[in-house]
Design a protein around this nucleic acid. Sequence first.
DNA 1: ATAAGATAAATTGGATTCAATAGAAAATGA
DNA 2: TCATTTTCTATTGAATCCAATTTATCTTAT
Lengths: 220, 220
Amino acid sequence: MKLNSVDISKTASASSIVFEALRRAIIEGEVKEGEPLRQDEIARLFNTSRIPVREAISRLEEQGLVKTQRYKGAVVSGLSATEAEEIFDFRALIEPEVIRRAVPLMSPETLDRARSSWAAFSASADPMRWGDLNRDFHATLYRASGLQYHLDVIDNAMDRIDRYLRAQLVMSNGMERANEEHIAIWEACVAGNAAQAAELTRIHISGARESLLQNINSLR
Amino acid sequence: MKLNSVDISKTASASSIVFEALRRAIIEGEVKEGEPLRQDEIARLFNTSRIPVREAISRLEEQGLVKTQRYKGAVVSGLSATEAEEIFDFRALIEPEVIRRAVPLMSPETLDRARSSWAAFSASADPMRWGDLNRDFHATLYRASGLQYHLDVIDNAMDRIDRYLRAQLVMSNGMERANEEHIAIWEACVAGNAAQAAELTRIHISGARESLLQNINSLR
DNA sequence: ATAAGATAAATTGGATTCAATAGAAAATGA
DNA sequence: TCATTTTCTATTGAATCCAATTTATCTTAT
């Protein structure tokens, strides 16, 4: 008798399932800023008790994705134009450095994976996928750096602005320009030109910053 | 009848009390890497139930201060030399930029507060206080930048290495050099020289990095 | 009609209890 | 004696229940 055994300590707990679902709903803009997260409602939705929901919400708060107030519950965090600006500046500081460190370490497999990523972005007619594909492209390149701490921090920065970025990509047809920039970054990586990749990344982020800041109030 | 009213929504929940106490115990090195955090034990210690303890632990995990494994509980995170190195590099990237942005915005009150801070550091005979005083000095200067997102990220980076840094300060009598560097940074700020303050901050962090990396294995 | 007070309902915070899992100890077999 | 299996204990995951607080609704007074 052949059984597919599963290491049960690796299966997802209720709280991590809820956390991931809520995180995704927030970064994809399915729940809006200011929207309350009702523990009992979410618990019903996931057919669990409120305890794992509370734990998930605690984690989301540490990620800055929700704000809780004692006895009043959690609401989805908003992001002011000032905050968005700051987070872009932060990314423009960190990500060029990460990709600069990553370039000399990139394997042919990584570069191939990244090419598939921008190609998929380019080819996708489904706006709902652009956000994930955009992140996948950048994550693939950055991962080669091995700088895990930096990557975790970048992930959080992206989570914080993703819902707006995604809406912006859909609304403004900014994907064409994003794609051109992705290809240019990728080409610099292929050429092993770390400084060029870093500079193009910085320009890419700054461009997204300007574009988003012009429209942030209509993206909420 | 005069009553001192308290906004009850601002009083600390059980879980946030436990979180803060555990966070402090970890960054001060009172619980060591690898040490398990027993939910029932902590709950007894704080005279509460396990639920707030679980929530606190969930939050600590998001901060990277503990690692949990399903059905096995939480242990205090360790930090390898590679990880420590990366976090210092990260700080050396971010903190100079933050102070560079802060310098033109520093008020006389801020500068006076920072002077008090390095003076207190200099005067303190209590090694247990050096860690807090060190952080207080830097936080005072950086806060003037108004870059709240950067500050939160720096706080987390510091939390991740603080237990080792504190042990290092005590063990190596590094406080004298740290203090000289604090004064030099402060003087650059007083002079309004943002570039100098940034460079001295970068050197300060890099020096701490080299020093810590030499000794990290004996600091656990 | 509006404001204030009282009551009810909704929601959160957390204590207690039950279920599940991992690890330790004891029992059994070779 | 050693290896394997079984049983027991410790601990975690989460369901249920109770207490506390906030919000909504209803009633009364002006």
